[in-house]
Simulated scan of single mutants.
Amino acid sequence: MSDSIRLSIKSMYTNLSEKEKKIADFILENPVVVGSNSINDLSETLEIAPSTIFQFTRKIGYQGFKDFKLALLTQGRSETEITIHENIYDSDSLLTKAQKVFDTNISTLLDTRKFLDQVALEQALEYLKDAEAVYFFGVGGSEIVATDAYHKFLRAPLRVHHSTDYHIQLMEASLMKPSDCAILISHTGRSHETIEIAKAAREAGAKLIVLTSSSQSPLALLGDAVFVSIAEETEFRSEALSSRIAQLSILDSLYVILMFERKKASKESMAKVRKRIAKLKAT
């Protein structure tokens, strides 16, 4: 597996059972110990059945514990060792606290970049190019990301739509056509409202592009093209805060790729917007 074990576990973490999360946490915090012990040793330490540990390694993409341990040892300590990037202390200066927040965001972007997939990018580009209309959906904090994307894609040669109200989003999704494309954003991929919107868009025959931090979430499983954002949770920040940075960057990437693909029409569209906006600027 080309991606680090840490990132693979992170992308599936929210869908793990409590016992599986206990196994995952121990692996992330003690990779060297896990790499030098047997499955029975790990079972005794965690007080979890060997069969559960074996199934966990299968769930994250390995043939079994031996295959997983070999990958763990091959990757080496530098890749598998968990890093708490923010790790802010009361004694830190204001500048240090701010710098550690930046470090966390930078780490989130680097981790998410490793999960970018060529096939998903190609699929998303085709859906956007062929779309009669593109709709941006998200609730709560994800709605802010959807609004930012809508504001950005207004400059593209596309018909784009976005509402901040959930009920209107649901109505829009139900009225979509097979020629339309929906971009759905949810950190957990388990937001009931966003899943309902996705189901409505799916029933209408539209293509679904999904941005989430959980590759096996219910929302991700509904998507035609899925992008995974990776984020670390810290004491005063939920994962959703860091994942927002990653999701904005994924959407930036899709926007730039589309604009390059339809360069002539994009230039014309941007020129119209800039000409109109320029009239509002102070002289």
Rank of each mutant, 00 (worst) to 15 (best):
133 A>K: 09
134 V>R: 00
136 F>N: 15
136 F>V: 08
137 F>N: 07
139 V>M: 03
139 V>F: 02
139 V>W: 01
140 G>W: 00
140 G>P: 04
141 G>T: 11
141 G>Q: 15
141 G>P: 06
141 G>M: 13
144 I>R: 12
145 V>G: 02
145 V>M: 11
149 A>C: 11
150 Y>N: 14
150 Y>G: 08
150 Y>E: 14
150 Y>D: 12
152 K>L: 15
153 F>G: 09
154 L>M: 10
158 L>W: 07
158 L>A: 05
158 L>F: 05
159 R>E: 13
159 R>M: 09
160 V>S: 12
162 H>G: 06
162 H>T: 11
164 T>P: 06
164 T>G: 13
164 T>E: 12
165 D>I: 12
169 Q>L: 07
170 L>T: 07
171 M>G: 04
171 M>S: 12
171 M>E: 14
172 E>T: 03
172 E>S: 03
172 E>F: 13
174 S>F: 01
176 M>C: 01
177 K>G: 03
178 P>L: 01
179 S>T: 13
179 S>I: 08
182 A>T: 10
182 A>P: 10
183 I>G: 03
184 L>N: 10
185 I>N: 04
186 S>G: 08
186 S>I: 10
188 T>Y: 04
188 T>N: 09
190 R>P: 03
192 H>N: 06
193 E>S: 12
194 T>I: 10
198 A>R: 05
199 K>T: 05
199 K>F: 05
202 R>N: 09
203 E>G: 01
205 G>P: 04
207 K>Q: 05
207 K>S: 11
208 L>H: 08
208 L>N: 00
208 L>A: 10
209 I>Q: 02
209 I>A: 02
211 L>F: 15
213 S>T: 12
213 S>R: 06
213 S>D: 06
213 S>A: 12
217 S>N: 10
217 S>W: 11
220 A>C: 09
221 L>D: 11
222 L>R: 15
226 V>R: 00
226 V>H: 02
226 V>W: 00
226 V>Y: 06
227 F>H: 00
228 V>F: 07
228 V>C: 04
229 S>E: 08
230 I>H: 02
231 A>P: 00
238 S>F: 00
238 S>W: 00
239 E>H: 03
240 A>N: 05
242 S>T: 10
243 S>M: 07
243 S>P: 02
243 S>I: 08
